[in-house]
Design a protein around this nucleic acid. Structure first.
Lengths: 214, 214
DNA sequence: GCCTGTGAAGCTATTCACAGCT
DNA sequence: AGCTGTGAATAGCTTCACAGGC
């Protein structure tokens, strides 16, 4: 049962909603309001209601949403039926930081292998994940049926890695590379660019010492 | 030169354009086309032309944009007049990864101090940046006139740090925290949430789908 | 009262399409 | 020819506003 495609923005918010709801479930709370969900996603209550409308979940006026049900509905949308295995390419500073932040915090997704050019890292565990040589990339992807990859390699290596991933069958890439990966349009790429993010912040932080140019 | 506020999306693309243009300047190229700029920002040529229209820069038909001029125009928009100093709070795995990726790659912005609760890190240099105890946070912010901060602390500490930053005068925060920082609306917050990003990728990796962007 | 669902309105962002320059 | 600038059109996203349920 394939849903009609939902926009990236809504998917992002659903992910945030779910994180909050899961917490509430653990605290054995039973209901949650749209304004609480809104706060966690920097959204408005009506936006939350819209989003939930898209996935076809109805709340109860004046009681809010039943958390156990809602988490199931959201998971039915976000999660692949039998779970997803992902790999990470590049186990430098950034790669290890990712490995210490992600595993265990993303329901339904597990990182099953890491890759690095550095031979000293190969054959060992990094944060509990086995690290392989770059030469094994295609083999492991095929064997594990990988469709999702995280790319955390230096900029100069990124294009080559992306090509290999795409050719080997990867259809979704989370990229930390500052230059866009050259992949064909059937591969979904999500760019996380810290430099762009910082420049945005610097811009909107406004002028030091309020110069007002009238 | 008074600018009206430009949208975050456009600022993000301008940042990417500038990175490419700077490279071209170094290669002593003189002109660049809108479709080249588009590629680097996952945009279309007409979007590029719109963006440049917003900042009031005109190209030359059939030659493109004069790179030396254009980089100046973009910088006049993005950069604070006398440069910006920023700090980073949290020097764990993620914090050090950031410190190894950002300094030197963002024109006009320098990271001048780091902070961590771990007393073993205080008083030392981390990637060339002096690390202070958390108690010095307000002092350093005041002394250096800091308006921009990067928050890379564990989730449970994030809210407290955000309050202190905002109270001390910070007006822009780049946050890597998975829960939204509780700051008043005059502080600009840019969230980088790896977990959400990964879930997006996993969702769109689903079936033979097509690409989109953030 | 407080909350939800949803049509309709309002906004923002992106693309089209074409005149005009080199 | 090949490119730009830009009004007009389109698409996409968010908010409003209000009827209806608890």
């Amino acid at each position: 049962m394939l849903q009609t495609k939902i926009s990236p923005k809504i998917i992002g918010r659903l992910s945030r909603y779910r994180r909050l709801i899961s917490k509430r479930v653990q605290q054995s709370q039973t209901h949650i309001f749209s304004h609480e969900l809104a706060a966690v996603a920097r959204a408005t209550p009506s936006q939350v209601r819209r989003d939930l409308m898209v996935i076809g979940y109805d709340g109860i006026p004046s009681r809010g949403y039943e958390v156990a049900q809602l988490v199931k509905h959201i998971s039915a949308v976000l999660d692949a039926p039998h779970g997803r295995r992902a790999i990470i390419v590049g186990v430098g500073n950034l790669g290890t930081a990712i490995l210490s932040n992600i595993p265990g915090r993303v329901p339904n997704i597990s990182i099953v292998a890491a890759f690095d050019v550095d031979p000293r890292k190969c054959g060992r565990l990094v944060n509990g994940i086995p690290c392989h040589a770059m030469t094994d990339l295609e083999t492991v992807i095929a064997r594990e049926g990988i469709r999702v990859a995280i790319v955390a390699v230096p900029a100069r290596a990124a294009a080559d890695v992306a090509h290999r991933l795409a050719r080997a069958g990867v259809t979704g890439i989370l990229s930390f590379s500052p230059t866009p990966l050259p992949v064909s349009s059937h591969v979904f790429v999500e760019d996380v660019d810290m430099i762009v993010a910082l420049e945005k912040v610097a811009y909107f932080a406004g002028e030091p010492a309020e110069t007002s140019e009238r």
